[in-house]
Amino acid sequence: MRQRQQRSNYREHTEENHGEEYDKKPEKSGDLNRAKRRVLHILERSDRTEQELRDKLAKNYLPEVVDAAVEYVKSYHYIDDHRYAVNYLNSRGKVRSSRQVEQELLYKKGVSKAVLEAAREEAEPQDEREQIRRWMEKKHIDPAAADQSELRRFYQFLMRRGFRSSDILTELLLDRTLN
């Protein structure tokens, strides 16, 4: 009986203290030198946009420290959203539709519309119809032999990936007329 009471008291004591420990959020650091080293460490591994760096640093550092650290790497041109957007458009544009890549840059990467417009002019143009043909090969779609429901599913699949309706229909109909 006495052991049960001791276990009960212990459980109550640990639950009370345990809740207090985990309710406290760690304080954000104000150490600028440490934030600069952290930014350089992040950029060492891969190129990032300014917004991605700010989001990553905001978890552990005060806002004024984040601003100063970002300005520090900007002064050395370690981050450049325009350069990042051009590289991203050129590399991802070979696999994904241009609309999908642009949406990623705007909403996931935090690139502004003005920077995106300038980068789009500088990036090499992508042939989306060629990408549709590659998807047709990958999914084993033969428009001449496919039934209506299979073509409809494939059309919707490509639309969800951001391809233009006119390009999809042109490729599906073009392939039908060639066979």
Rank of each mutant, 00 (worst) to 15 (best):
Y72P: 04
R48T: 02
H82M: 11
I79G: 00
V39L: 03
E64S: 12
A85T: 14
D55T: 11
R34F: 09
R38S: 07
V66K: 01
R34S: 10
K59R: 14
A68W: 08
L53Q: 02
H41F: 14
L43G: 06
V39K: 02
R48E: 06
D23K: 15
V70T: 01
Y84V: 11
R83L: 10
I42H: 06
E21Q: 15
V65Q: 03
H77Y: 10
E50D: 05
K56S: 14
Y76G: 03
I42W: 07
D31K: 05
Y84E: 11
E71H: 07
E64Q: 12
L43Y: 09
P26A: 08
A69D: 00
D80S: 10
L62T: 10
D80A: 05
N60T: 10
Y84T: 08
R37H: 13
I79F: 01
Y84P: 05
K28W: 01
D31S: 02
R54Y: 07
V70S: 00
K59L: 14
D55L: 12
N33C: 00
I42M: 13
D67I: 00
A69V: 00
L62E: 15
L40T: 11
V65W: 05
L57W: 05
L32A: 08
L43N: 07
V39F: 03
L43A: 09
N60R: 05
R45T: 13
Y61N: 03
L53K: 03
D31Y: 05
Y78H: 09
E27G: 10
Q51W: 12
R83M: 09
L40V: 11
E44H: 12
I42P: 05
Q51P: 06
R83K: 13
H77F: 11
K25Q: 12
R45K: 15
D31H: 06
L43V: 09
V70K: 00
R54L: 08
L62G: 08
E71A: 12
K56G: 10
R34D: 12
D80R: 00
P26G: 04
R37E: 12
I79W: 02
R38Q: 07
K28L: 10
K28Q: 09
P26V: 06
A85K: 01
Y72R: 07
T49P: 04
H82W: 13
E20T: 11
A35P: 01
H82C: 09
E64P: 07
R54K: 11
E50S: 07
R37C: 07
K25Y: 09
P26M: 08
L53H: 01
A35R: 04
E52K: 09
Y22Q: 13
E52C: 04
D81P: 01
R83E: 11
E64D: 12
K56L: 15
K36W: 06
S29Y: 00
D47T: 13
K59H: 13
E64K: 10
L53T: 03
K74E: 05
D80L: 03
T49F: 01
E20N: 12
R34Y: 10
D55F: 13
E64N: 13
T49A: 02
T49D: 02
Y72N: 11
K36D: 03
D81W: 08
V39D: 00
P63V: 02
L62H: 07
R83N: 11
V73A: 04
V66R: 01
R37D: 10
E21P: 08
R38L: 08
H41N: 14
Y22L: 14
L53F: 08
D81Y: 06
